[in-house]
Design a protein around this nucleic acid. Structure first.
Length: 241
DNA sequence: TCATTAAATTGTT
DNA sequence: AACAATTTAATGA
């Protein structure tokens, strides 16, 4: 994978199926929805391509229709700190879009993905006109705050099994990522990138988790059987006494 | 639609 | 990091 590619400028209108994958569309009234649909554009991002980079001015509010993105935030020293996965149904950038600032993180495609974009002007117009849209955004901001706090906790986890379990649980958040059903399409390699572990270790952790019954490992993906159990997964380490 | 082949992903060392 | 085994996707008759 090369790390200096940016996505193409090629954008196109959305198909009906793609519109159905956008969770907030149905919250809009007729005229609002019409305006949003008119403005929405789809871009394809190949593996390794950037959807947005730190410092660039915000022009779009983005959502994942298909594929998997990686959000990484850099600290003051320029070191990449936190990784958060963005599966289908996830929308991001509302914080910076609200204030019309520049992006504070990089978004990179882990594999070929379809990304929908709504222009910031339309984003603001919807905020000014739609109660439903406001509720969605408020809910989204609240959930994401919890997500980032969880990400910090994951970063401090030393136990790889727990890191994998929490990273997975985050990706299965039904509020932030309604596009993810019971089965998340993610390879063990991709999960390794997100959790900051080797693929082998992720494989081992997944085996342990499936033995505990919270997930089932499938080819090219993971099925969640018990989300609360996954969130709460604890692994016995060395005896405390 | 089926069979063959290539590519991707997984499990293991 | 390398390897073999397994699963899926692509191809063409």
């Amino acid at each position: 994978m090369s790390y200096d590619k940016s996505i193409h400028q090629r954008r196109r209108p959305l198909t009906t199926a793609e519109l159905d994958a956008i969770p907030w569309i149905q919250l809009l009234s007729g005229p609002e929805r019409e305006r949003a649909v008119d403005d929405l554009k789809i871009t394809e991002a190949g593996a390794g391509e950037y959807v947005c980079r730190t410092g660039r001015p915000v022009t779009y509010w983005f959502g994942v229709v298909d594929g998997l993105l990686k959000m990484s935030s850099d600290n003051a020293e320029g070191k990449t700190m936190t990784f958060i996965g963005m599966p289908p149904g996830g929308w991001f950038g509302e914080g910076t879009a609200l204030k019309r600032e520049s992006y504070r993180y990089n978004i990179q495609a882990l594999r070929k993905s379809r990304v929908a974009g709504l222009h910031v002007d339309t984003f603001h117009w919807l905020l000014d006109h739609s109660i439903g849209f406001n509720r969605f955004i408020m809910n989204q901001l609240n959930e994401r705050l919890g997500q980032f706090i969880a990400a910090r906790e994951i970063d401090r986890m030393t136990n790889p099994d727990i890191r994998v379990a929490r990273s997975l649980a985050a990706l299965f958040n039904p509020v932030l990522y309604p596009g993810v059903g019971a089965v998340l399409r993610i390879t063990q390699q991709e999960l390794a990138y997100l959790a900051g572990l080797s693929r082998q270790r992720v494989n081992e952790a997944l085996t342990t988790l499936s033995e505990q019954g919270s997930i089932r490992v499938e080819y090219g993906g993971v099925r969640v059987l018990d989300l609360p159990a996954l969130r709460a997964a604890v692994f016995t380490r060395k005896p405390l006494v």
